[in-house]
Design a protein around this nucleic acid. Structure first.
Lengths: 193, 193
DNA sequence: GTCTATAGCGCGATAGAC
DNA sequence: GTCTATCGCGCTATAGAC
């Protein structure tokens, strides 16, 4: 939830995140961000050293949160119930703060962020997330299903965008599908129960 | 499969498609494309009126192919078996020509192509594809699963990229998961058989 | 069909006043 | 903390020779 009163630094982050996601990082100029805030480009440079550093500032938070969640998962036994609880926690955190918007920004600017250090950090920790949901000897179809569980939680926005589902409905349905997928993978691993 | 001998126009398309997908549309300059081909920027302008028109040229083929497939599906009765056959045809076409590369280019340049007419045409026909896989009264979780079936076929490249699965293994596994998902959706619709 | 040369523009970033 | 003014660059695109 965005605060009603924010300092300038935080307002720059919010406007930039929205514009970068909507139009793309490269297609969004600092002039546009400044204009929407009612200031000039030069003012932005008081708060951030560069355009790149605006991105860094909100990616850092996402990377740290994901790393904490992965640390929790790695300390737990690798059971089916751990995986269910992991997915629940992942979904819950995604709805807090700027996390969902940052993931959407990342997905839609994969190429522009290809060599960005923070982007690589998020990609690496997402790979650890994927590893947590997988077993070493899972065949490829099971790996794909585990990945789709993660993707389901990120992608609610592109499902039936014209229909008026509430955010809560979308989040709930996405979590349900994600849990069904990890359950299906668990069942596939032990066909005899 | 790319031909060994190509005319210059076709070579420009291939190099541009690869660079646009790898680095992003906006981040790729005509100078880079020209250099990789061993010609100058001005030479590209003999074959294409603008940078935008290079994109248009390979998106047109993708849109037309998708529209033909959707026309087939819309003429068929909306049965479970039609949906299975539709997914099989979709997967088969994706492996031909430049289709898979064009979809990857689209996914990775969503923002840059936001207002591109051909991109909107592909988005619209993808929405018709989604409609074909859905029933009017499908609840949200079923809609999400149907979408994931499509996504599975596009996303094999991000699954375990470091492992050496062959293209055939990836395509086969993705098709299998997509079919399992449409079957699961069909089963959810008729829990009593 | 490809070249050299350049026009014209918007960008990220900086300097220095207030 | 925000402003005006400007620098330098790389880009898309075009003109015209060969």
């Amino acid at each position: 939830m965005r605060e009603h009163r924010q300092d300038t630094r935080s307002r720059i982050q919010d406007v930039a995140l929205d514009l970068f996601t909507e139009q793309g990082y490269e297609a969004t100029s600092l002039r546009e961000i400044a204009e929407r805030l009612g200031v000039t480009k030069a003012a932005l440079y008081y708060h951030f050293k560069s355009k790149d550093e605006i991105v860094t500032s909100f990616m850092e938070d996402r990377a740290a949160t994901l790393e904490r969640l992965v640390a929790w998962g790695q300390a737990e036994p690798r059971t089916d119930e751990m995986r269910r609880e992991f997915v629940r926690r992942y979904a819950a955190e995604l709805t807090e703060g700027r996390h969902y918007r940052v993931m959407r920004f990342l997905e839609r600017n994969q190429t522009a962020l290809r060599d960005h250090p923070k982007s690589e950090r998020v990609r690496e920790v997402m790979y650890s997330v994927f590893e947590l949901l997988s077993e070493a000897d899972d065949p490829l179809p099971l790996r794909i299903k585990s990945s789709l569980a993660l993707f389901a939680m990120h992608a609610t926005w592109f499902i039936a965008p014209e229909q008026d589902y509430s955010d809560e409905e979308r989040e709930g349905a996405a979590l349900q599908v994600a849990l069904e997928l990890v359950d299906a993978v668990a069942a596939d691993r032990q066909p005899t129960g």
